[in-house]
C-alpha cells in the first residue's frame, strides 16, 4: 500500500476550500496552513490570467525532512505517509530548511492573526484549540489525514473512494481536482486517473525527493 495524491491544476478554481477544510480537520496552529493554494500570474495583459497550485506535504519516498531531523521525530509509515511526532521533536527546524516544498510548520505559540505590519491581533478561540492539540516549539505538517485513512481501513472503507476515509482536502474540493488513493493498486482512483490523464509531474524535480504528490493539468 502506498498512498499518493494527484492534483489536476486545470480543474482548480482557487476557492481555497481545501485550505480551510484542512485547517478545520487538523486544528493547525494559527500561522500553519498545511494545504495552501499558491497563486501565480501568467501571460501579459490582456492575455494574463491567474493559475492555482494547490499544495501540501509531498510525502516523499526519499524525504529530506526525515534525513535532516536529528531527533527521529519525522518518520515514514509503511504506507508511505510521512508523519511528525510532536512528542519527539526538539524544534531544531532542520526539517523546515530541508523541505523543498515549505510543508513543515513550527508552532511558535504565537497567537492571534498576523497583521500586515508584523504585529498580531488578540488571541482567538482557534489559538486555544491549537494549544490543546499541538506542542509549542515543535513542528507539524500535513498527514494526508492519516487518522481518517486509519479510521476508514479499520471500518472496511476505501481511502480515496469513501469520504470518511479520504483526506479532508480531497473530500472538500468542489472541482474534484485532488485525487487520492493507493499508488500500488491499479484499480484505485489515483491509478485510474493517471492512466487516463497520462504521466504526472512532481514539484521541484531537482530535489529528487520521490514525491508521492504529483500534478497534471
Amino acid at each position: 500500500m502506498r498512498w499518493g495524491m494527484v492534483i489536476d491544476t486545470a480543474r482548480c478554481v482557487g476557492c481555497h476550500a481545501c485550505t480551510i477544510a484542512c485547517k478545520a480537520e487538523n486544528e493547525s496552529p494559527a500561522d500553519a496552513f498545511y494545504a495552501p493554494v499558491v497563486e501565480y500570474e501568467v501571460g501579459t495583459y490582456p492575455e494574463a490570467h491567474t493559475e492555482y497550485l494547490p499544495s501540501l506535504c509531498n510525502h516523499c519516498e526519499d524525504a529530506p525532512c526525515i534525513t535532516a531531523c536529528p531527533s527521529g521525530a519525522l518518520k515514514r509509515r509503511d504506507d508511505g505517509i510521512v508523519l511528525a511526532d510532536e512528542d519527539v521533536c526538539i524544534g531544531s527546524r532542520a526539517c523546515m530548511n530541508a523541505c523543498p516544498y515549505g510543508a513543515i510548520h513550527l508552532f511558535t505559540g504565537a497567537e492571534g492573526e498576523m497583521l500586515a505590519d508584523g504585529t498580531r491581533t488578540l488571541p482567538t478561540v482557534q489559538d486555544r484549540v491549537a494549544r490543546e492539540r499541538h506542542q509549542v516549539g515543535t513542528v507539524s505538517k500535513c498527514t494526508y489525514c492519516a487518522h481518517r485513512i486509519d479510521f476508514g481501513l479499520e471500518n472496511g472503507l476505501t481511502p480515496g473512494i469513501d469520504p470518511l476515509a479520504t483526506p479532508a482536502c480531497v473530500v472538500t474540493c468542489p472541482a474534484e481536482c485532488r485525487i487520492f488513493g493507493d499508488l500500488e493498486d491499479d484499480t484505485s482512483p489515483i491509478s485510474l486517473y493517471l492512466e487516463r490523464r497520462g504521466p504526472s509531474e512532481v514539484l521541484r524535480p531537482d530535489a529528487e525527493t520521490g514525491a508521492h504528490t504529483s500534478y497534471v493539468g
Binding site: 534525513t67 535532516a68 536529528p70 526538539i90 531544531s92 532542520a94
Partner: peptide, 24 residues
C-alpha cells in the same frame, strides 16, 4: 535555540542520516 531545549539529548538519535546528530 531549540524549540524544546529540554529534549536536546534527542539530537543524538538520528546518527544514521542527520548532520546535526553527527555534530552532536
Amino acid at each position: 535555540d531549540l524549540g524544546r531545549p529540554l529534549r536536546a539529548w534527542r539530537a543524538f538519535v538520528n546518527i544514521r542520516t542527520s548532520a546535526i546528530s553527527w555534530g552532536a
